[in-house]
Amino acid sequence: MTTLVIAEHDNAELKPATLNTVAAANAIGSDITLLVAGSGCQAVAEQAAQVAGVSKVLVADSASFEHQLAENVSLLVAELGTGYSHILAPATTIGKNLLPRVAALLDVNQISDIISVESADTFTRPIYAGNAIATVQSADAIKVITVRSTGFDPVAATGGSAAIDAISAEHDAGNSSFVANQLAESDRPELTAAGVVISGGRGMGNGDNFKLLDGIADKLGAAVGASRAAVDAGFVPNDMQVGQTGKIVAPQLYIAVGISGAIQHLAGMKDSKVIVAINKDEDAPIFQVADYGLVADLFEVLPELEAAL
C-alpha cells in the first residue's frame, strides 16, 4: 500500500487536520507520502517532514498553487496519484473541494468523510446527517478518500524524519483566479480541534449576547460554535456553524446553550464525549443526547457558570 496524503496548510503552517489524516493513512498501510502543494511553503514542508509515520514529503512550490485552487492542484494530484494505491485528504473545505475533482480526473469514485478503516478497500462513513453508518467497499484501482478528522486520533506532529523532495510542477488551468479572502480573526482554539466547545443558538437572542459565552470560553480554553439558526440570524459568522453543513466537532466537552438540537445540528456534535445542554424548554430534543441537562434561562445561568469556573 502506498498512500499519498494531501497536506492542509496556509503556506506558513501545517494544519492539524493533516495529522488525523495521516492516522487514517496509517490504518491502511505504512508507506505514506505527504504532498505539500503551495507557494513559498518550505516551512510547511519542514513541519511535514517531522510528522510521525511519514516516509516522504513532496513539495510542489509554484505560484499556480498559492491559493490551492482546485483546478490547478487537481491536475498535479491526478498526475502524481497514478503511482499510489490511496489518495487521502482531510474532509475540510479544501479537501472536499479538491478530491472529487482529482477522483474524476483519475476516473475513479471518491469516498467522502470516512470515520474508520475496515481494510484497505473497505471504510465506514456516516450518511443521512449521521443517522446511519454505511460500510462501503471500493473496487477502484485508486482509492480517493476524504477523512473526517474527529474519526481518527492525530499522529504526533514531531518525531518523524522524512526526506523532502522538491518536485518541479507547474499546473495552471487558467480558468479561475483568486480574488480575496475574508477570514475571521480569533485567538481561541480552532473549532474542530478544541477540547472544549461552547455553542450558542437562536436562544442567545442577538449577536451581543454571544459575549456571555466568551468569558466561559476563556476560562475553559474553549472554542465558540453556533447553530445554523444563530448564523442565519446574523448573530455570528458562518465559519462558527456546527452541524451537517458546518463543522463536525467531537470535543471532550460540548456545551450547547439555547440550542434546540435539530437533526442537522446533532450531526455535527453528537460524538462529543460529554454533552451539556442549557435550555429553558425542557422538551428540547437536545436533552435526549445531553449527559447533563439544565433547564433554565441561559441569561441567568451563564453569568453564574462563568463565576463558578
Partner: peptide, 20 residues
C-alpha cells in the same frame, strides 16, 4: 465500483441526567 456492504444505526446516545 462502490458497494455498500451494510448500513448500521450509529451508537445510540442515551439521555443523561438533569441537574438543578
Amino acid at each position: 465500483n462502490l458497494t455498500t456492504l451494510r448500513v448500521d444505526t450509529p451508537p445510540v446516545r442515551s439521555a443523561g441526567v438533569k441537574v438543578e
